[in-house]
């Protein structure tokens, strides 16, 4: 217990000694104020992201076909390709 107390004291003391946090103002500098309600980069107003859609933009009746593409075809093919879905089998990288 004494060892642990020493350890905690040393850790807090070094924190205070380095003076990070308030004294440097490093965590939340005021020269970078966030406007209230600002959207994520590329997302703004009722057009919620950078794609072409907007409140008035979906002028079609339906732009989504109903059928599924069964196979994902994004970068997951680079992240080890198909993996075993069995919980207990270790995931292996595909080449």
């Amino acid at each position: 217990m004494n060892d642990q107390h020493t350890l905690i004291s040393a850790a807090i003391t070094s924190l205070l000694a380095l003076g990070i946090g308030t004294s440097s103002g490093s965590a939340y500098a005021t020269d970078h104020e966030k406007c209230f309600g600002i959207a994520k980069a590329g997302q703004n107003g009722c057009n919620s992201n950078k794609s072409k859609h907007s409140c008035a933009g979906h002028s079609k009746v339906d732009n989504d076909p109903n059928d599924f593409i069964v196979v994902p075809e994004g970068s997951c093919l680079k992240v080890g390709g198909k993996l075993e879905s069995d919980e207990d089998k270790p995931a292996t990288p595909g080449k």
């Binding site: 994520k40 919620s48 992201n49 794609s51 076909p65 196979v71 994902p72 075809e73 994004g74 992240v79």
Partner: peptide
């Protein structure tokens, strides 16, 4: 679009068409 904004990595991993479906 809201989901694509929140999950850009998932969209890249599975591809845009798969993500939309």
């Amino acid at each position: 679009d809201a989901l694509a904004g929140a999950y850009p990595v998932i969209e890249q991993l599975v591809g845009k068409d798969f993500f939309r479906r």
